[in-house]
Amino acid sequence: MNHINIWTEKYRPVTFDEMVGQQEILKRVRSLVQAMNIPHLMFAGPAGTGKSTLALIIVKELFKEKWKENYLELNASDERGIDVVRQKVKDFARTKAIENIPFKVIFLDEADALTKEAQQALRRTMENYSNTCRFIMSCNYSSRIIDPIQSRCVVFRFKLLEKKDIKKRIEVIAENENLNITEKAYDAVYESSEGDCRKAINLMQATAAISPDITEDMILMVSSAAKPADMKIVLDYALAGDFLGARDKLLDTMLKESVSGTEIIKGIQKEIWNLEIEPSIKVRLTEKTGEAEFRMIEGSDEFVQLQALLASFVLAGKGES
């Protein structure tokens, strides 16, 4: 047990029984682990639904207290390039696993952050070390993983957690931390977590830092203060015809809050329907937004695509499209 006061770690489930949601997946994985042999696994699904947690439970069940020596965790979006990943895998896989299990486990988090070329290279690595290593990969969308890798893995699809699941975890925390939570506050936590358990727990801890008596209002206050990238202001500038104002605001938001262009686009897409413009123009703008998101993948500079999109909003503000 961790003695450090970060709740997402302190209350991370360490056994299959503690996990909430994903019951079908748990059943199958549990039987694989009991046979003491796992294939390569792929966990696909949204953030905060238990992918890393399950990977950790698997290695802890397999290797017991020796799990740390037999487990390597890599985050594809943090490692610089596939070469680093390969080198680390190579170094790790070189020594044999101890205990009565003939393999070690590598958890490659956010594998969909790798480019297609990097994934091709990874596929070779998987083959080369298939005798001594099992890979568990996590990704948000399995469609971003190339077929050859998918076909080597057993794919499990994680779903967003339901309200009862998230409530169950929070109740455990509330009891241990001596918190008083109103029923409505549970609803508010679930609403703003959008089925992401990590988000829900972080929100709880941030709120509990203010007071152990947690109400709906407090949850709403904390979650709105920490809401990333408010696109409304940017779009308001643009619709009012102030392109430069909108552009500056956008760049500031992106830099200050460390959000990527893709996330900004998502925010814009959601915001369009709250704007006070003709529905027909909203449809046109949604098309433009989708096009910009698509172009971001092909292009080299996200901010350029966003500027082009802002210019369309300036036009829309004049009633044109």
Partner: peptide, 12 residues
């Protein structure tokens, strides 16, 4: 977790 996600969740 990835560094990027933490940077984004930094305020909370």
């Amino acid at each position: 977790c990835s560094t990027k996600r933490i940077m984004r969740d930094f305020p909370i």
